[in-house]
Design a protein around this nucleic acid. Sequence first.
DNA 1: TAGAGCCTGGACAACGTTGTCATCAGCGAG
DNA 2: CTCGCTGATGACAACGTTGTCCAGGCTCTA
Lengths: 357, 357
Amino acid sequence: MPEPAPRADRPADRLRDRPSGTRYGNRPTMKDVAARAGVGLKTVSRVVNGEPGVTPDTERRVQEAIEALGFRRNDSARVLRKGRTASIGLILEDLADPFYGPLSRAVEEVARAHGALLINGSSAEDPDREQELALALCARRVDGLVVIPAGDDHRYLEPEIRAGVATVFVDRPAGRIDADVVLSDNFGGARDGVAHLIAHGHRRIGFIGDMPRIHTAAERLRGYRAAMEDAGISVADSWMSLGVTDPERVRRAAEAMLTGPEPVTAVFTGNNRVTVTVIRVLAGLPRPVALVGFDDIELADLLQPGVTVVAQDAAALGRTATERLFRQLDGTLLGPERIELPTRLVTRGSGELPPSV
Amino acid sequence: MPEPAPRADRPADRLRDRPSGTRYGNRPTMKDVAARAGVGLKTVSRVVNGEPGVTPDTERRVQEAIEALGFRRNDSARVLRKGRTASIGLILEDLADPFYGPLSRAVEEVARAHGALLINGSSAEDPDREQELALALCARRVDGLVVIPAGDDHRYLEPEIRAGVATVFVDRPAGRIDADVVLSDNFGGARDGVAHLIAHGHRRIGFIGDMPRIHTAAERLRGYRAAMEDAGISVADSWMSLGVTDPERVRRAAEAMLTGPEPVTAVFTGNNRVTVTVIRVLAGLPRPVALVGFDDIELADLLQPGVTVVAQDAAALGRTATERLFRQLDGTLLGPERIELPTRLVTRGSGELPPSV
DNA sequence: TAGAGCCTGGACAACGTTGTCATCAGCGAG
DNA sequence: CTCGCTGATGACAACGTTGTCCAGGCTCTA
């Protein structure tokens, strides 16, 4: 007997059978509530959404039916009908990076203030994965997207943006499309940080940063070069090292520039991951080496010496971007803009060490 | 003229009008693709989903139409039809807390391996907000929920769980319902940490922890008491302080137990937030005070002295929980279980300081 | 050459909600 | 007493997709 019955009441497309009190795995719908309350479908909808035009008595009956059945509105259907999902997507590089914690919290808070949920994913610095994620989020019909780009070509988002997906890029600019961008002043911050070292007497200063294809890394390198040039110092190639922030590579890079014929007396590190590794390297050295790092790190003040950093305000980045996103959705925005937030030099000791001879 | 035409081709329920190349804000649907490709609706569906039974030639025509129109499947409709959303929800306390970074990354990775997206929200340690979030996620029909509970009564989730929402609690147990729980061995970890201090000669040991209504805080306090009792030490009330982990309160608590008639010679801190604040307090003291903290913290090895901690594996917590969630969805699971992961004592110096007299 | 069987493709309903519109009862005014 | 109005209520279609099922054309074989 391949077919038990010619026609089942409901298609049994949901396989899970749990020891439920009532229907197996099938949730009650407004139709069920309506039947139980003895009212029409639309009346239930009105009650659920707090729309006016329902007698207190009717409302009570509906509420009772909702309670009794454990009804919960199916937002998928609602979204399908209304066109807006009240959710935004956040794509970042790595949820576990302490820099992104405050940023995503800020994004979440602004979203929450607008009644939206946050869906997020990590690109792991892989452009393909970024695209895959972004498009998956668009297929879910998120209302907007906050993207910390891994790739440098975002034309794939053009149809989505045209279709109304509000999009803001954070921390790094969008590639090959015109879109809202919220950045830190990476160039200025790095230049100031390096200038600080120069002001304390250093001339041979090393730079260790992330892969040069990452915009922030490139900008910070540019800031380093600018500060050196402003001071009339010519930079040796061996003083600069860009690449993955994997501790092993960073360690080797640091050790290389600290030895050799022209060893650096100070190091400028391009992000928090690099800074942490370099602190470990410097801790193992007999002579003190000055250090300024981009990005603040927790407990930086308690190390000996305290670590001087160029701090950026990750929360402000996230907040600014997300507020802008919702203004795009409001329609109270003119055109794409590039917003640059200032950085702040926090002196704690490591940047004020004199060059040791 | 209030009405421009008796019947518009499409209801203009979407207000946004962008300078789109084609239809304003209206995305193409499979119907549009079908029309353009000169095929039936279902054929488009087949191509989009890679189902068999389509001639290469037809498939090519459909693909071209998809490209040309910039079509992207509307997953809301798909979800409505299929009943599964391929997304899971994560509710934690605070996205910005470094402890939750690795945890949520692990959750995301497992979700990704199962083709699911991650929606997350922060409860800010507020039970009402936790419930609001959880139910909002259920309304979105997430397939499952990973919850780091803020509240201690989760009966509100019963109808959802019955309806098939896979649910796993992490870091703290569920309240008043029977559900999967993945925890660290908070009791054992704290006991070992305190025993370590005792082994190094301490008798007057302080405990500073989070609010006692939080399960982890209570368990760690219990571990502290157990270790003290095992060593035959009777604990003075003034040695223990539980409450919010706000730096101001923690600072006062630490200062109080470090002065007075019976000052402690060592402190056990109940979580990473507390540890960081106490390190700052201790750094300002003339005499050394031993410290062991629950939770590992970055750079703990570089402080003077290094901070001895009871480390828990946040990533393993998230991974274990999420894998279990998907096994619930597979149906390859018997019943709710309580899984306890071990902690690890990492000695770095601060816990090995002798009592200073 | 005809029949059987297979493969491709399309018509149609259904998922659960919301917007539109019609209906109906009750009521006040003329 | 009746007309028209108001406010509550429900019937119905639509959102965009997928599952079911049937039709038509093709190939293969007897």
